[in-house]
Design a protein around this nucleic acid. Structure first.
Lengths: 343, 343
DNA sequence: CTGAAAGCGCTTACAG
DNA sequence: CTGAAAGCGCTTACAG
C-alpha cells in the first residue's frame, strides 16, 4: 500500500499542493472550509507526511544520537530511559550506539551519527578516550553536544555530572560519624575520572578528620564485580583485622563484600560498616541492606536531554548558548550496613 | 560550517553533478582519472552525502524501530545490545522506544516509528496488549515486522522465541531427577504467555513423572521482585514443610527466596532445592549459586535483527518472505542450589 | 566516458 | 484566500 502524498489529496480536491500543505499545518491564510475539507480527506486517506522530504526541506531530523560505554548496565539503562522519555515529550527520537569503552569504536559511532544527520548528540565517554578531536569535530558542524556522567573537563560543551568527590566525602564522613576509626577503600580502576574523584573524596574526609591515610587500606578493583568485592573483603579482614569501615566504589562490589563477610560470620555493621555507591536496586534487597550514595541515572538522562534540547532550539534561531555544567545532587541513603547511632 | 554538496564538488572540478555522484559510487562508466580526482576532493572537503536527500531518493532510511516493555531490565538490555550490534554490522541504526507494558503506549510508539519511516520494526509486546490491529496495520504498509520474546501467536509475522514450556519442564525434571518428591512453583502473573507456559511445563513434568499436582503449591508472583521471593519462600516453608523443591519463574524472585531460606537456616539444596529461570548474572554470584535456565537475550537480539534484515532485503527486491518462527535453545545451568547426585 | 533532465515529497517566499 | 514556482541534495534512466 503506497503512502498518500500531498499531490494526491490536491488532485482529488482540485486544489493546489501548496494549499493542501498549508491547510494541514493550519496556516492562518487558508479558509476554514478548505482546511476542514483537506483535513478530513487526509484522515480518510491515512496521510502521513513523508519524513524524508520534510527532513530535507527543514534540515532537521528530530532525532538525536546517544553513545554510551555499555548498554547492559543498570545505571546506564536508567539514563537511557530518562533520555528517551524526555525526548519523546519533545517529539525527538533517539538512536543508541555503544562504545564498549573503546575510543576507536566511540569515534566510529560518532561518524555514523554524523552521517545520519542527527540534530544533536549525547555522550558518556569511554574509559579509553583520551583524545577529544572527534567531539570538537562534531561541534564544528554546528551541532550541539552534551556530555554526561563520564565527561572530559577539557571539552568546551555542556555537561551533566555528579560531584563524585563530594559524594565520596559524604560517604566516608558518614562512616566516621557513626564511629569508624580505621576506614578502608575499595576503589575503581586507576584511569576513569570518577574512580579517581571518589578516591580523592575518601582521602579528603580522612584528612579533614585528622585520620591517617594508609595506602595499604586502598584496594584497586579492576573488573568491579561481585566476586572481586568478596575476595577483597576476605583479604582485607586478614590483612587488617583492625579495619571497622569500608567505603566501596560501587554497589555491585559492596554487595559482594557484604555477602562474603556475612558468610565469614562477621557482624555488619557491628564489626565492619560498609558504604557503597550508586544505589543499585539490589542494595535495598540484600541483608543487611546497603548504605549507599544515590546516583540519579534517570534524572541525569532527563536533564541531559533537556539541556541538549535547549541548545538545539538555540541553533534553530541561529543563536549559540554558552556551555553550562550541571551538577546533580547525590544523596546518602542510610541503611543497615552502617550504624544508626551518631557518635 | 556548511556541509559540502555534490554541486560544490562539481563546480570546483568543472564537471557535472551526475559524474561526481557516479564517481563517488564507483560506477563502472566513469573514467579512473575522474574517479580519483573526485574522490580526492571529496575527502579534502570532508564530503558526506546528505542522508535526508538519499533517504528521499532511495525511499529507505537504513533505520529500524525497536519497542520493548522496559529498558531497565537485564534481559531486555541484553536483547537491545544484541540487536544494535548486529544492526551496526549491516549498516542499520536503531531507534528505541519503550511501551511500559501499556497497550496504548505501544500503539503510540508504533505510530511514531511509522511516521519516522523506519525500514522495519522489532517488538516485544506489552503485557497489556491483547488487540493486534496496530501490528497488522504496520505490516500493511509493506514493512517487515518481527516479534521476539513476548509474541502473539495470532499475528502472522516472524517470531523469535524460546520454548518456555519445554524449558520449565526441563527445570522441573531436574528437580525430580535429583530426588525432589514434592515440588512447588512460584509462577508469574496470570496473563503473560510466558508465565502461563512455564507453569504448564511445570505441570507436565509432574504429570509425566506420575507426581500429584497440588494447586496449593503454586504461588503467584505479581511484581516478580526479590522481596516477593523471600516472602513466598517463608510462607511456603510454613504452609508446606514437606516441600523439598521449588521451580521459580525468574531468577530475581529465586534469589530472594534463596536468601530468605538461608537466613532461616534452611539448607539449600539439602532440605530444599531451587531452580530459577533466566540466568541473570547475579545467579552465579550468590551463595549458594542458583541452578537456572539460561535465556539467551543477546543471542535473541541478534537473531531477531538477522531475520528482520532478511525480510527488509526481500522487500527491496519486491519479494515477500513467508513468516518463520525461530525457537532459540535454552539450557539448564546446574549450580549449587540443586543436588548434583542423580538418583 | 560525460551530462542534461526528471523526480523523490515536501515547504515557503512571493504574486495575485 | 489561493497557487505557481523554486529549491532542499541526491540518484538514475536516458541520450549523446
Amino acid at each position: 500500500m503506497k503512502p498518500t502524498t500531498l499531490k494526491e489529496i490536491a488532485e482529488i480536491l482540485g486544489i493546489s499542493i501548496t494549499t493542501v500543505s498549508k491547510a494541514l499545518k493550519d496556516y492562518p491564510d487558508v479558509s476554514k472550509k478548505t482546511k476542514a475539507m483537506v483535513k478530513e480527506l487526509a484522515v480518510t486517506m491515512n496521510y502521513r507526511p513523508n519524513s524524508f522530504a520534510v527532513n530535507l526541506r527543514t534540515k532537521e531530523s528530530k532525532t538525536i544520537g546517544l553513545i554510551i560505554p555499555e548498554i547492559v548496565h543498570h545505571f546506564f539503562s536508567s539514563v537511557i530511559k530518562g533520555i528517551i522519555s524526555q525526548a519523546e515529550k519533545k517529539g525527538y527520537l533517539v538512536i543508541i550506539l555503544q562504545s564498549d569503552e573503546s575510543y576507536v569504536l566511540e569515534k566510529k559511532q560518532m561518524e555514523l551519527l554524523l552521517n545520519k544527520n542527527v540534530d544533536g548528540l549525547l555522550i558518556s565517554l569511554a574509559n579509553a578516550t583520551a583524545d577529544f578531536d572527534h567531539l570538537t569535530n562534531f561541534m564544528e558542524q554546528g551541532k550541539p553536544l552534551v556530555l554526561f556522567d563520564k565527561v572530559a573537563k577539557i571539552v568546551n560543551c555542556s555537561k551533566i555530572i555528579i560531584d563524585d568527590r563530594k559524594a565520596a566525602e559524604t560517604a566516608t564522613q558518614h562512616l566516621i560519624d557513626t564511629g569508624c576509626k580505621r576506614i578502608a577503600h575499595f576503589r575503581g580502576p586507576l584511569l576513569p575520572q570518577n574512580s579517581i574523584d571518589r578516591f580523592l573524596g575518601y582521602r579528603k574526609a580522612l584528612r579533614d578528620n585528622h585520620m591517617e591515610y594508609d595506602p595499604s587500606l586502598v584496594y584497586i578493583c579492576n573488573d568491579m564485580s561481585y566476586e572481586e568485592g568478596g575476595n577483597y573483603a576476605e583479604q582485607l579482614v586478614k590483612e587488617h583485622p583492625d579495619v571497622d569501615g569500608v567505603f566501596i566504589n560501587t554497589d555491585m562490589v559492596a554487595i559482594g563484600a557484604i555477602t562474603r563477610l556475612r558468610d565469614m560470620g562477621i557482624d555488619i555493621p557491628g564489626q565492619i560498616s560498609i558504604v557503597g555507591f550508586s544505589n543499585w536496586f539490589m542494595s535495598s534487597a540484600i541483608s543487611p541492606s546497603l548504605t549507599t550514595i544515590d546516583q540519579p541515572g534517570f534524572e541525569m538522562g532527563k536533564v541531559a536531554f533537556k539541556r541538549l534540547y535547549k541548545e538545539m532550539q538555540a541553533v534553530k534561531s541561529k543563536k549559540q548558548l554558552p556551555p553550562t555544567i550541571k551538577v546533580l545532587d547525590t544523596a546518602l541513603v542510610k541503611r543497615e550496613s552502617t550504624r544508626s547511632v551518631t557518635v
